[in-house]
Amino acid sequence: MKKQKQNYSISHKKYLKSLLIKKVSIHISRILLLVLLLGAWELCASLNIIDPFITSSPSRIIKQISFLVQDGVLFHHSWVTLYETLLAFAISTIAGTLIALVLYIIPAVRKVLEPYLIILNSLPKIALGPLIIVWMGTGTKAIVMMGILICIIITTISMLNGYISVPKEKILLMKTMGASGFQILTRLVVPASFSDFISVLKINVGMSWVGVVMGEYLTSKAGLGYLIVYGGQVFKLDLVMSAIVVLCILAGLMYGLVALLEMYINKKRT
């Protein structure tokens, strides 16, 4: 919808101003909270109220990160994890969406598989770790597989629910206009489930990182998960914290990209 410039009344201007003030103060509070927490952490560590050897501290993390960057190590490990995550994210999103479509098209298969899906969904996927390693080896494949396993079931279930919730009357309408089954799918069911797809993307951004880091805990020679495990074993908590910070940043960026995509497509559609 287009915004029009209008001559607002004084009370409306006041209202808009108060909205703006609220919005700005929330942003400021957020930043303030972060600064406060980091400041308290740093202060406690430097005054030895907490042991920086165990808790690390912001300044030590920054030092560690810049050291890792200079070494070129950080980029390498981040890239390994990012690559695995993107792969798991893409494969599970595409495959889950397609599997859901097949289940939607063939209700008999859906009915048969329903209990299996429910059990698989509630199964803690990490329990399959040893099996994955035996079957797929200890390389990237096993790690990506872990990521896929975590995402694909929930993707399938969410997309299936999306397809099923397309209003019956709209399907009838398509039939009365002479649409074929395939046309009902491509012109109605798929576009109508778009918002479900976006929320699946958002869930999968988080879940694929979870799966991949878990996979790296199980078996890895590189990656941020590897750095975290390694740092823990040799008691280099600065390294652990640094890897966590980089994870946060990467996951946040990926979520942001999905949100941007959503905004872009929504704009194109309206």
Binding site: P167, L172, M174, A179, A192
Partner: peptide, 26 residues
């Protein structure tokens, strides 16, 4: 031609695309 209680317009299509929806079939 069937008209339902609800208009069942497709929210993601503009008015022209909604009106000509049925022309894509048959």
């Amino acid at each position: 031609g069937y008209m339902f209680q609800r208009d069942n317009l497709f929210e993601w299509l503009n008015i022209w695309k909604n009106v000509t929806l049925g022309l894509n079939f048959k």
